[in-house]
Simulated assay, not measured.
Amino acid sequence: MEQGQQGRFAGRSVIVTGGSRGIGKGCVEVFASEGGLVSILDIAQEEGEQLAESLTASSTGTVVYRKCDVSDPEELKNAIEAVAQQFERIDCIVNNAGVHPPATPIDEQKLADLESLLRINFISTYLGAQYAIPHLRKTKGTIVNMSSMTAVLGQDQSSAYAATKGAQLSLTKSLAVELGPQGIRVNAILPSNVDTPLMRDWAATLPDPESALKRVSELQVFGRMASPQEVGKVALFLATDDSSFVTGQGIEVEGGASLDY
């Protein structure tokens, strides 16, 4: 069977951190549907194992799960090395793992919480790239960092979160300059509102969840949120030769939410 029939990522290896749920899961599903060798690095073991088993059985790709706390540098490095050993290559890392804390005014932000957020959202992205680069040099691979529209627009009472997302975007641009001569492309995705379990968990904490979700949906010109798979398709584009002349960019996948401000 020719590669085109197997899929656009057939025979190539991709790591998705935080791939058990939400946007990460959408990325895993898209890469698996295109024949990829997909490695989920996540702390959510049950969900990750179930997803890997299901997609390996139902798609043209192969999906494996590795338990990994991305905030632990040693765990992250060991997991990336294990992927490289298993598949004998790494063609892309999608640094997706992250958290969004509750709305917190800056004068109530605790230093310990800020440091934890930086470790999960930004340092894991930095180290994920660092640990994957020796393998990406061999494949002329790609790095995709999952940032956020808050990196460029800000967000009320979420200064710490927005700052970590801005750091991801700045890292993307700097690494693109540094790694371009070595054949490695680096890009970021900046989603707006995506219909994920975390989004629905947030809405469930409010007095009228359905009204809250409707309000968030109407921020986009399409009157709806993105699906995780729609974001995953952008990640696939950035990981393939379809985007061979694209690097250092923050691709705003925001359904027009920033327009007509």
Rank of each mutant, 00 (worst) to 15 (best):
V99W: 09
E230M: 15
N121T: 01
L175N: 01
S71F: 11
E2Y: 06
A163T: 15
V28A: 11
P191L: 13
L198Q: 11
R200Y: 07
G7P: 04
L171F: 13
S217V: 05
D113E: 14
S39C: 15
V221W: 05
R66A: 06
E34K: 12
V152I: 15
D91V: 14
T17I: 03
D42H: 10
D107A: 02
P105E: 08
E75Y: 01
M149L: 11
I90Q: 02
E34L: 13
K67N: 11
H100Y: 12
G18Q: 06
T125K: 01
I120G: 00
A112K: 10
D260H: 09
G4R: 10
P102D: 12
R119A: 05
Q182Y: 09
L153K: 10
A188P: 02
E252F: 11
P181H: 10
T172G: 06
V63T: 12
E81S: 11
P197V: 15
F122T: 02
L171R: 04
A44C: 13
D156E: 12
G35H: 04
V70R: 03
G61L: 09
V28P: 07
A188W: 06
N145G: 14
A188Y: 01
R8D: 08
D201S: 12
S258C: 04
P134E: 15
Y131P: 02
S148M: 06
E254N: 14
I189P: 00
L238W: 09
G48T: 12
N78I: 02
K233W: 12
T139Y: 12
I189D: 03
A204T: 00
F122A: 01
E49K: 14
D107Q: 10
E218G: 05
G48C: 11
V38C: 07
V70P: 04
E81G: 01
N121G: 00
A132T: 15
L127W: 14
F237L: 15
H135P: 03
G250T: 10
S116N: 08
V221E: 05
P228M: 12
T247N: 03
T125H: 03
L236M: 13
T150I: 09
T196A: 06
S148Q: 04
A163E: 08
V231A: 06
K165M: 09
I120H: 00
V64F: 09
D72E: 13
D156M: 14
L127P: 01
I133C: 07
Y161R: 04
D242M: 15
A151H: 03
T104F: 04
Q86R: 13
Y126A: 14
L171D: 03
A257P: 00
G183W: 03
D107G: 01
R21W: 15
V246I: 15
S158D: 03
A44F: 13
E74K: 13
E88D: 15
G183K: 02
N187S: 14
A82S: 15
